[in-house]
Amino acid sequence: MPDQTALPAPATGPVPVAGAAAPVPPVPDVRDGGTAPHRRGGRRHRWPVVVPFFAFLAVCFGLPAGTMVYGAFTVLDPESGASRFSTENVSGSLSGAYATGLTGSVELSLVTALLATVIGTLIAQAVVASPRPALRGIVVSASGVLANFSGAPLAFAFIATLGTTGTVTQLFHLDRTGFSLYSFTGLVLAYLYFMVPLMVVTVLPALDGLRSQWQEAAASCGATRGQYWRHVGIPVLTPSLLGGAVLMFGTAFASHATAAVMVGSSQPLITIQIANALNGNVLVGQENLALAMSLNMVVIALLVMAVQIPLQRRSARWLG
Rank of each mutant, 00 (worst) to 15 (best):
S150I: 01
F149N: 01
Y191N: 08
S220T: 05
H38A: 13
M297E: 01
T87G: 07
A65Y: 05
S130A: 13
R314G: 09
F158D: 08
V59E: 13
Q4V: 15
V106W: 03
V15M: 13
L295G: 01
V69L: 07
A18H: 09
L174C: 07
R40Q: 13
R317K: 12
F158W: 08
F184I: 07
L303H: 05
A254P: 04
T238H: 01
G13V: 10
R39P: 02
L247S: 13
N288C: 13
A36G: 06
V263D: 03
Q286K: 12
N89R: 08
T165R: 11
L289W: 00
L319W: 02
V49A: 08
S109N: 09
T185S: 13
A157C: 02
F61C: 15
T238M: 15
A21G: 15
H45L: 08
A257L: 14
G19H: 06
V298H: 00
Q170V: 07
R132W: 11
Y191S: 11
V200Y: 02
S240H: 00
Y193F: 15
P310Q: 11
T74V: 03
G92C: 03
A190W: 01
L241I: 05
S141I: 15
L154I: 06
A190H: 09
S255R: 15
F73Y: 10
G264F: 07
V284C: 03
T87S: 11
T87R: 04
G42M: 03
R46V: 06
G163M: 01
A126T: 13
V140N: 10
D29G: 13
G104N: 09
G243A: 14
N89L: 00
L289P: 00
